[in-house]
Amino acid sequence: MYKKQISINTSVDKVWNALTQPEEMRNWYFSISNFEATEGAVFDFIVSFTDEAGEHSFRHLFKILEVIPNEKLRHTWEHPGHSEGTSTLTWELIPGEETTTVILTHEGNESFLDEGSKYFTAESYTAGWNDILQGLKDYLENEV
Rank of each mutant, 00 (worst) to 15 (best):
F30P: 01
F30V: 00
F30N: 04
I32G: 12
I32M: 12
E36M: 07
E36L: 03
G40L: 11
A41L: 02
A41F: 02
V42F: 08
F43R: 07
F43Y: 09
D44C: 11
F45Q: 00
I46W: 06
F49I: 00
T50G: 08
E52P: 05
E55G: 12
F58T: 00
F58C: 03
R59C: 14
L61A: 07
F62S: 05
I68T: 15
E71F: 10
K72M: 07
L73C: 05
L73W: 14
R74T: 13
H75R: 04
W77L: 02
W77N: 02
W77F: 11
E78R: 14
E78T: 00
H79P: 01
G81W: 10
E84P: 03
E84Y: 08
E84W: 10
G85V: 07
T86K: 14
T86D: 07
E92T: 05
I94H: 15
P95W: 02
P95K: 09
T100Q: 07
T100A: 05
T100L: 11
V102H: 05
V102Q: 04
V102W: 10
L104T: 00
L104K: 01
T105L: 14
H106G: 02
E107C: 08
N109I: 13
S111C: 05
F112T: 02
D114W: 03
E115S: 07
G116K: 08
S117V: 02
F120V: 05
F120S: 09
T121K: 10
T121L: 06
E123T: 11
S124Q: 10
Y125H: 13
Y125A: 09
T126C: 05
T126A: 15
A127R: 15
W129Q: 04
N130K: 04
D131F: 13
L133H: 10
L133S: 03
Q134F: 13
G135N: 15
D138G: 05
